[in-house]
Amino acid sequence: MKILNKKNILSILAILIVYAIVELLTHLGVIDSYIQLNLILIGINIILAVSLNLITGFTGQFSLGHAAFMSIGAYTSGIVTAKLGLPFIVGIIAAAVVASIAGIIIGIPTLRLRGDYLAIATLGFGEIVKIIAINNDYIGGAVGLNDIPQYTNWTWTYFLVVLTVFIIYNFIKSYHGRACIAIREDEIAAEAMGVNTTYYKILVFTIGAFFAGIAGALYANYFSFIKPDSFGFMKSVDILVIVVFGGLGSISGSIIGAIALSLISVFLQNIPELRMVIYAVILFLIMVYRPQGIMGNVELKLFNKKGGLNGYAGSK
């Protein structure tokens, strides 16, 4: 019942220790800038995957347009920090807010669309966002937006990852989260039990887009340069693959999936010509041999031994 119970204190300690270890290794020079780059990329991918998992894994709404929310966040933060010269925190918040407004807009079609049709509509939405960015000279058009100040570092990334996981995990463990899972399981039965499916579907798109926007801000302010092509259909597929590989409906799965697929792509960078061919084969093998992903829909349990999705039972 208390917020500072044993389990929570252990979690906070573990979070701080991981952070401290990475900081220490960076100061000692064990983690060089290349490793740091990959750590930040992994962090961005975790935020993207966990937020998409809320939409697709938990609520069952098939989305192929998650990169569009990231794109909107990246450009928003780019404009706020580079063109308006405002601090990073303003950029992050603006990115999240603007992306979540887009989430509301794309959430509305979900009220009428299901399955493959929704996937295609979100794909279309992603392409529209990309084409608008390409044709907008204020944000650099197809060439992209340059000279974005490099604010993103390990600290920002790490704590935003923690925040994302914390919020989405808690949401899922509440009756709101259970309602979302019920929508995935059986929409008609969920409605008959009093779940306002319209409200929850738009809500998860809004929350999911909010965090994808944050991921976009981190990306833009790390690489200093963004272009519309970076957030196309393939990026959406990459995020979806992480979610499916980790396990639909498993947050720990998304984290493991983001780490695993980021590492795979690091190794594949050594063979640029065959990179995508091997990636395709890996995807195919995962889908054939482990379509439920590494974790299925189960969570990795570090501190609480009592299982189940029900947060109350786990926090007694």
Binding site: R178, A182, E185, D186
Partner: peptide, 13 residues
């Protein structure tokens, strides 16, 4: 029923 949810979670819905 919500097939992949537990008995308790079903009733909680």
């Amino acid at each position: 029923l919500f097939k992949d949810m537990t008995v308790l979670e079903n009733v909680l819905i």
